[in-house]
């Protein structure tokens, strides 16, 4: 664990940074190797890969048809994933805002009890729930629908989001609410016109976290979906992985296309992304 400048004489005024740069680049280089391999193999066929596994193919030999194959295969799944993820994210935050508003605005009778009901969920691991949840969804006739995934996504994310939002809403200036009340605004209007405009950054951060969780989910879709036209990317890729003859170039191209929505999100929300991930640690 020691840094490279360990043996430098005591009290030396200048510490050289380049050994640190070298080590960081080396480690991150290996860490990014899967991404590099995905990119470069997506332009090859199996023969080209066997002959030259490490370096990218020349541009003239790049196998563009891999992307065509990938697009046809994964585009419907990406559409499904976007539908599920966006619906889950929007509804999760809306429902969580309702809950957080209740706890943050006044201390109503039973507030403490209800809060405990929410917090207790932090103690409960979700893994034991999977089997009964499957039975519940089955009895509700929601098996093999995208709504099943959205509903489960919403209910799973409530505690964390309400917890964060409650603290935030409690810190909003009280006179804003009082002024709105004098103007005759009901609670829903206050939520809409005071809370939501004022909590833009925190909502953005929570939205990114929720988006990532939902986008990466593959176990629930695998359990709850049967029809291939409903598959989000996760399950679609699992079935692609199950094929016998593997054209790695085409498979890597599919992986690449499946990542594009997240890449776009990343480009536009880099700051929120980094902040959202840092605060994700508080998730209990």
């Amino acid at each position: 664990m020691s840094a490279p400048n360990k043996n430098r004489p005591a009290g030396a005024p200048k510490v050289k940074d380049w050994p640190k740069h070298l080590i960081i680049l080396l480690v991150l280089g290996v860490e990014l190797l899967p991404l590099y391999m995905m990119l470069q193999i997506s332009g090859k066929n199996n023969l080209m890969f066997t002959e030259n596994p490490w370096l990218p193919a020349r541009l003239g030999e790049w196998q563009w048809e891999n992307y065509l194959f990938a697009f046809e295969l994964i585009a419907p799944a990406v559409a499904n994933s976007i539908f599920i993820t966006v619906s889950t994210t929007v509804l999760t935050l809306f429902v969580a805002l309702l809950g957080a508003y209740f706890f943050a605005r006044y201390k109503m009778p039973f507030s403490n009890f209800l809060w405990a009901v929410f917090l207790f969920l932090m103690l409960m691991p979700g893994v034991a729930n999977i089997v009964p949840l499957f039975m519940l969804i089955k009895s509700m006739n929601l098996l093999n629908t995208l709504w099943a995934l959205i509903i489960i996504g919403i209910s799973g994310a409530q505690v964390f989001n309400i917890y964060i939002l409650r603290n935030f809403i409690e810190d909003l200036p009280k006179d804003l609410f009082e002024a709105a009340e004098i103007d005759g605004a009901g609670h829903f209007k206050q939520l809409l016109h005071i809370v939501i405009p004022m909590s833009g950054p925190i909502i953005g951060t929570l939205a990114i976290l929720s988006f990532l969780t939902s986008w990466n989910e593959f176990l629930m879709p695998l359990i709850f979906l049967k029809d291939s036209e409903l598959f989000p990317i996760g399950v679609a890729l699992i079935y692609l992985d199950g094929e016998y003859v593997k054209q790695w170039g085409a498979i890597m191209a599919t992986f690449l296309l499946a990542s594009i929505p997240l890449i776009i999100l990343f480009l536009f929300t880099m700051k929120l992304f980094v902040r959202g991930l840092s605060s994700g640690a508080v998730k209990g």
């Binding site: 209740f102 929410f118 409960m124 949840l133 519940l136 799973g156 609670h187």
Partner: peptide, 21 residues
Amino acid sequence: RLYLFVAVPLFFILMFQYFPA
């Protein structure tokens, strides 16, 4: 009416977290 606000998330966790448990 505030109780209506909390009823929504409460419904979700009772139905899809506590009931399965």
